[in-house]
């Protein structure tokens, strides 16, 4: 079994991940091999079972909304690939 090329490209586009021709070919085989191994879960009867999102039974955790010191803009922007003044600089979203 092999994932179709269009399926691989569709997934990559959903997460905006660029792939080389070689990677498209490789992933279409590897992903389907891995997915085949997941078929085993079909054997398990999960009727009426709740899904588990994490392992400790914490509900919503609230705190008071109190102001506290934040970071200096220089610290926040120190790793920015591109900046202009105190802003992250990005390319035009709408042409």
């Amino acid at each position: 079994m092999k994932l179709r090329r269009e399926e691989v490209l569709h997934l990559a586009r959903l997460v905006r991940l660029g792939l080389s021709e070689e990677e498209i070919e490789k992933f279409s085989v590897q992903l389907s091999n891995i997915l085949e191994n997941f078929e085993i879960l079909k054997q398990v009867d999960t009727t009426n079972l709740p899904p588990m999102t994490q392992s400790i039974a914490l509900q919503n955790v609230f705190r008071e909304d109190e102001p506290s010191p934040s970071y200096h803009p220089e610290e926040v922007l120190a790793n920015a690939p591109q900046r202009e003044g105190n802003y992250f600089k990005i390319r035009a979203v709408l042409e």
Partner: peptide
């Protein structure tokens, strides 16, 4: 078929 199913089986394992 995948994510939700896995979360339910996770309940069973726990």
């Amino acid at each position: 078929a995948y994510y939700l199913k896995a979360q339910k089986v996770r309940t069973l394992i726990k």
